[in-house]
Write a protein that binds this DNA or RNA. Structure first.
Length: 288
DNA sequence: CTGCAGGGGTAAA
DNA sequence: TTTACCCCTGCA
């Protein structure tokens, strides 16, 4: 087991990070800590006052692993200051979600996870991903429990649509199958995507995958290691909060995507993705 | 207890 | 631009 304790990390609240909708494989423990699997690592994260305790099984050195995954080299205080100056709405939502950090999640896993997320709810999404990992991923034993890595493209290569259906994927079965084949065939080459600085080109490539539409593509761009903070994923909650705060039409479902995008670009610019996350998290927690 | 809408959209018509 | 879609949950 590896362990590291960090003090006074800028922007680091467990609930904000793990419940803000960016990830599906972190679960809360009885003591308030969270345990999750990413890559070939199993990690438990606990916060005691200003101390953050990371412990688990990491494939390489734990310090570098968490620096990368939790985006620790980025200055979130600076980002929050910039966004807070925009208006009172941003100030308020950032105050609410001040501990958010955007994780550096594996591109392949993020693609599959967000295809599964379409027209779905979080408990079910988490359940599906857990069942896929348990059936096709690798087991890792830690702390008296068995955890499972998210399967690689190779591990899913020969899984049939029927098997996915039996796991409860519903109509997403075919999409996962087709996207996996496209990635294995390199019709979409993930390694090239990681190198490509042109966000629009990367987005077009993602959109060519089965089950990836505009919203899912933007989530992949924002939440994976692609890390594009300028994109602005629009789902029902973002539509709701943007209409409530900025557009103010009687019927939010009538507000066009283009209109929301325009406002987001004008107000938030290159940090639209981050702004989206603070607004989304704030608005969604109001309704729970 | 049964029926039904709706959920962090996408693809097909 | 509109509609069906797996499955699960919440609620009338």
């Amino acid at each position: 087991m590896q362990k590291i304790i960090l003090n006074n990390i800028d922007s680091f609240e467990l609930k904000d990070i793990f419940d803000c909708g960016q990830c599906f494989r972190w679960n809360k423990e009885q003591d308030g800590s969270y345990t999750g699997v990413f890559g070939e690592n199993v990690l438990n994260v606990k916060k005691e006052n200003e101390k953050v305790i990371f412990q688990g099984l990491c494939k390489s050195e734990i310090k570098e692993t968490i620096e990368e995954y939790f985006d620790l080299k980025r200055d979130y205080t600076k980002i929050k200051n910039t966004l807070s100056k925009i208006d009172d709405n941003m100030k308020m939502s950032i105050k609410y979600g001040q501990g958010i950090r955007i994780l550096n999640q594996d591109l392949w896993e993020t693609i599959i996870s967000f295809i599964i997320s379409a027209n779905n709810n979080i408990p079910r999404i988490k359940g599906i991903i857990e069942r896929i990992s348990k059936k096709y991923g690798n087991p890792i034993n830690w702390n008296g429990k068995t955890y499972y890595t998210f399967p690689t493209p190779e591990q899913l290569k020969n899984v049939t649509v029927k098997e996915y259906r039996e796991l409860g994927l519903g109509f997403r079965d075919k999409r996962i199958y087709e996207t996996t084949q496209m990635i294995i065939n390199k019709q979409v080459d993930l390694e090239k995507l990681k190198q490509n600085p042109n966000t629009l080109q990367v987005r077009d490539q993602l959109l060519s995958l089965s089950g990836v539409g505009p919203k899912v593509a933007d989530c992949i761009l924002l939440f994976s290691t692609l890390k594009r903070f300028e994109v602005f994923p629009i789902d029902v909650w973002v539509r709701r909060v943007m209409n409530d705060l900025y557009i103010k039409q009687a019927d939010e479902t009538k507000v066009s995507k283009a209109q929301i995008e325009k406002v987001a670009k004008e107000k938030f610019g290159d940090l639209a993705g981050l702004a989206q996350q603070y607004l989304f998290y704030w608005r969604r927690e109001q309704d729970i």
